[in-house]
C-alpha cells in the first residue's frame, strides 16, 4: 500500500465504496486502483475488556458489535450509544469502528464532482459563498467541514488512545491528537498518511463515579442521518459535586471538538443551572458561524447543558 499511491485499505466499504461509485476525485482522494481488504487480519475485530487494563477495540470491530457488547453497554454506555446512533442497522453490521473514525466528510460540495474545492486539491471553498446550513461553526479555516463520526466524540470523551502503524513503526497517541484540522493539512482529517493503518483503540476503565451521556441532534427521526450536532459527555461526580468533566462535540468543527472551556468551568464545582449555562456559553465563545448555520450555536449550548444533566442523573 505504501508503495502504491492509489492503494487504499477497505474495511466494511460502506464509506469507501460510496466515494468510488460517485467517482469523486482529487489530490486527497485519487481514483483508487487497488483495495486491500483488512478484514482478514486475525483478531483485528476484538472487543476485550479487563478491569485493570480497560477496553481494547480492534479497528475491524463492527459498530453493531460494539453497540451490543455487554461490557461496553455496562461500563462505556456513551460509546455503546454513539455506535448505535450512527447510520442504520444494516450499515452498522458491516461498518467498522476504524472505518467510522477514518470516514471522509460529507460536505455536499466535496462529494459532488462539479466542485473542485480545497479539500480535493482545488483553490476555493464553495461552502463559504454557498449553502452552509450544516457546516462548521468552530475552527474552520480554508475548509469548513464538520467531522461526520458519531463514535469519535465518544472515544475522545473516554480519553481513548489510537495505535497506528506507519513507515516508522507503531505509535500510540490520544485521539485528541489523532484528528487534524484544515490548518494542518486540508487534504486529510487525521494523522494517517498513505499506507498507514489504525491498528488498535484503547481506553482506560472509567471511574465507578462516572456518569455518561450521548445526545445526537439530527434532521429526521433516529435512523440513517448524520449529526447536526452531537455531544458525548463523561462526568465524574459525587452527588452534585463535579470532580471531572469530559465533553466532546461533533458536527460543529472540522475535527471532533473538545469543549475545554466547559470542562474547566465545571471541574470541582457544584452543579447548578447557572453553572451549566456559563460552562456551555464558555465552550461556544469562539464560535464563528457562517451565513446559514448560527442556529448550531444554540443547539450546541443546549445539548451541553442537557448532556451534563443526563450524565449526572
Amino acid at each position: 500500500m505504501r508503495a502504491n499511491p492509489e492503494a487504499r485499505p477497505i474495511a466494511g466499504g460502506s464509506d469507501l465504496l460510496g466515494w468510488i461509485k460517485e467517482d469523486v476525485q482529487g489530490t486527497g482522494e485519487p481514483r483508487w486502483n487497488l483495495l486491500v481488504d483488512i478484514r482478514t487480519i486475525p483478531g483485528s475485530d476484538e472487543i476485550r475488556f479487563d478491569e485493570a487494563d480497560g477496553l481494547t477495540l480492534g479497528p475491524l470491530a463492527t459498530l453493531d458489535a460494539i453497540e451490543h457488547s455487554p461490557e461496553v453497554q455496562d461500563r462505556y454506555p456513551v460509546l455503546s450509544r454513539a455506535a448505535g446512533a450512527a447510520a442504520s442497522p444494516n450499515i452498522r453490521h458491516v461498518g467498522t469502528i476504524g472505518g467510522n473514525i477514518n470516514q471522509r466528510p460529507r460536505c455536499w460540495y466535496l462529494r459532488n464532482t462539479e466542485f473542485d474545492c480545497y479539500k480535493k486539491g482545488g483553490n476555493f471553498c464553495f461552502a463559504v459563498t454557498g449553502k452552509n446550513e450544516y457546516h462548521a461553526i468552530l475552527n474552520g479555516e480554508l475548509c469548513y467541514i464538520v467531522h461526520p463520526s458519531d463514535a469519535a466524540p465518544a472515544l475522545m470523551a473516554l480519553h481513548a488512545d489510537a495505535t497506528i502503524r506507519t513507515a516508522d513503526g507503531e505509535q500510540t497517541m490520544p485521539f485528541d491528537e489523532y484528528f487534524i484540522g484544515p490548518r494542518q493539512d486540508v487534504l486529510r482529517e487525521n494523522v494517517l498518511q498513505q499506507g498507514d493503518l489504525l491498528t488498535r483503540i484503547h481506553m482506560p476503565t472509567p471511574s465507578p463515579n462516572a456518569g455518561m451521556s450521548f445526545i445526537k441532534a439530527q434532521r429526521r427521526g433516529e435512523t440513517y442521518d448524520f449529526a447536526v450536532v452531537n455531544v458525548a459527555t463523561v462526568i465524574v461526580h459525587e452527588g452534585d459535586q463535579i470532580e471531572d468533566a469530559s465533553i466532546v462535540l461533533s458536527g460543529v468543527a472540522p475535527t471532533p471538538f473538545r469543549a475545554v472551556a466547559a470542562e474547566d468551568a465545571l471541574r470541582g464545582q457544584t452543579v447548578s443551572d447557572g453553572l451549566l449555562q456559563q460552562a456551555a456559553g464558555a465552550a461556544l465563545l469562539r464560535a464563528r458561524p457562517m451565513t446559514e448555520n448560527a442556529y448550531k450555536v444554540g443547539i450546541s449550548k443546549n445539548l451541553i447543558v442537557r448532556s451534563v444533566r443526563e450524565a449526572m442523573a
Binding site: W108, Y109, E114, F115, F126, T129, G130, K131
Partner: peptide, 11 residues
C-alpha cells in the same frame, strides 16, 4: 437545494 452562485443542485 441549489448552490446560489452556480445553480448546481448540491443534494
Amino acid at each position: 437545494i441549489y448552490d446560489p452562485p452556480t445553480g448546481v443542485v448540491v443534494n
